[in-house]
Amino acid sequence: MAAPILTETPDRCVVIMDKELHGGILANAIAVIALTVGQRHPVLVGESLVDASDFAHPGLIPTGIPMLRAPQAELVRIRHEALNNGCDVVDFPVEGQQTKNYEEFKKMVAQLPTENIKYTGLALVGQKKTISKIVKKLELMN
């Protein structure tokens, strides 16, 4: 089953991480998810930032990215709800942090039915109103 094709230009992205992750493991998972979101949705990246010396800095996301957290079991429900509401979901299975070999990671995931996959975190991309309804009860990451 492929990810849904967004019918409207996305105007919102949120990241929701397993609330038990900390330090380098948390930072790694956020970086992996963010890199994939940027590749899948370049429309979210703003124009280059030009400083007073006329040096262009890479564009950043102009809407910001709320960083939320939830219990790992809740991530499965959020993922399912987001997909059912037409959002694109970038998910990072926990197996990705159990190996440094991408081929091994792919094999590990290939052995799991979707309902048995646990996630370090998710990014939801889509329409602000839809995403807000899904994440309204989640707490901000601190």
Rank of each mutant, 00 (worst) to 15 (best):
P62L: 06
E47R: 13
R12D: 03
V32N: 03
T9D: 13
I16K: 00
P62C: 07
T36Y: 03
S53R: 13
A52T: 13
L49H: 13
S48H: 12
V43P: 02
R40G: 05
A56D: 12
P4G: 03
I5F: 08
S53F: 10
N28Y: 05
Q39E: 12
T9I: 15
D54N: 15
T63A: 14
F55V: 15
H41P: 03
V14P: 00
H22G: 05
I5C: 08
I25T: 15
V14R: 00
I61D: 01
P10W: 01
F55Y: 15
L60Q: 07
I5N: 11
V14M: 02
P42A: 10
A56V: 10
I16N: 00
G23E: 05
G64N: 07
D51C: 09
S53G: 12
P62G: 09
L60T: 06
I33G: 00
P4M: 04
I33F: 03
F55C: 12
D18G: 02
V14Q: 00
A52H: 13
I25M: 14
C13P: 01
C13V: 14
P10V: 03
R40P: 01
T36V: 11
I5D: 10
A31D: 10
E20M: 07
A31S: 15
V50K: 11
L35Y: 12
I25V: 14
T9M: 13
G38M: 06
E47L: 09
H57Q: 13
T36H: 12
A27H: 07
G23V: 05
L49I: 14
E20T: 14
P58T: 09
E8N: 15
T36L: 09
L60A: 10
V45M: 10
R12F: 04
T9G: 10
S53H: 12
G23W: 05
F55H: 14
I61C: 13
L21T: 01
C13E: 01
L44R: 01
E8T: 14
